[in-house]
């Protein structure tokens, strides 16, 4: 390789960098704009001119005990944590079994069929059946019901992801522990599960984002108001007769910013989660 080529390669391509910069700005405009409006009073938002006066009133109104906002955040947090934990518990057991325990074919076939079929089914088509199921279980409109439903939609991805993480751990490790006299349970909890931790972390972050963002099931399986998750609360602000854009922006801001910060900080895990998740589904 010649000197000349190396110099040429390290030269900054101005057009390219400019194009990327513009794309970054376009990507950020909707996010920045909602962040600005969240801190503006309604009259400056509705006015036709640009009027930026910092104001915390939107958040104060939302946090008012008479509003459902805080209750909905609490619901969403509960649904998110519940879904992540349940998904990890079921997913790690099943994923481990698929990867290391060589289950008989009659047991794995339905698992693979279900795991690859569910992701292609539009959730709206399952609404009547899930509605009936939750009614029969007496869980309609409850946070527990939404935890179960969210878990179901995330399990196919989680189980395949976790299986692939366990696949990366050599079989010899398990066999050595068994030969040393450790029980199956012990091998799973003390040897293999700790090794799969980074993978489980990626799955947890991905599932948390999905559960926090879920809307359709929250919309149909709850009666709204204090029983609903945050996304449904935001939607009801959009559909109010008198749209209060400030509160709408503030609630959207609260729903989006934690996730974006999480993404910025844990970008590597999320990237691996998103790419793997999408391939699997």
């Amino acid at each position: 390789m010649t000197m000349e080529k190396r110099v040429q390669k390290s030269k900054v391509n101005v057009t390219l960098e400019l194009a990327i910069f513009v794309t970054i700005v376009i990507t950020l405009i909707p996010i920045i704009w909602i962040a600005i409006l969240a801190f503006l009073p309604n009259k400056s938002i509705i006015g036709t001119s640009f009027d930026f006066s910092f104001w915390l009133g939107n958040f104060r109104t939302l946090a008012d005990p008479g509003q459902n906002f805080l209750r909905q955040i609490f619901n969403s947090l509960t649904i998110t944590f519940g879904t992540v934990i349940l998904t990890l518990v079921i997913g790690s057991g099943s994923g481990y079994s698929l990867s290391k325990l060589k289950p008989p074919k009659w047991a794995t076939t339905p698992v693979f069929i279900l795991a690859s079929f569910l992701p292609i089914v539009p959730p709206i088509t399952l609404v009547p059946g899930i509605y009936v199921t939750l009614t029969n279980l007496n869980l309609l409109g409850s946070v527990t019901g939404l935890v179960l439903v969210n878990t179901v939609f995330n399990l196919p991805f989680a189980i395949l992801m976790i299986k692939s993480y366990f696949d990366q751990i050599p079989d010899e490790l398990r066999e050595a522990a068994i030969v040393d006299g450790a029980s199956e349970r012990r091998v799973f909890f003390s040897v293999l599960l700790p090794l799969a931790k980074p993978g489980l972390g990626a799955v947890a972050i991905y599932v948390a984002i999905m559960a926090w963002n879920e809307f359709l099931m929250g919309l149909i399986m709850t009666t709204g108001g204090g029983a609903a998750p945050l996304t449904v609360g935001i939607a009801s602000l959009v559909q109010d007769y008198e749209i209060t854009f400030g509160q709408m922006s503030a609630s959207g801001f609260v729903a989006a910013i934690p996730i974006i910060i999480l993404t910025a900080v844990a970008s590597r895990q999320i990237v691996s989660g998103l790419t793997a998740g999408a391939v699997k589904s």
Binding site: I24, A255, L262, V271, L274
Partner: peptide, 12 residues
Amino acid sequence: IFVWPAVVAPVV
């Protein structure tokens, strides 16, 4: 940054 839009809730 290019990843951010994908993690925002569709409702938002």
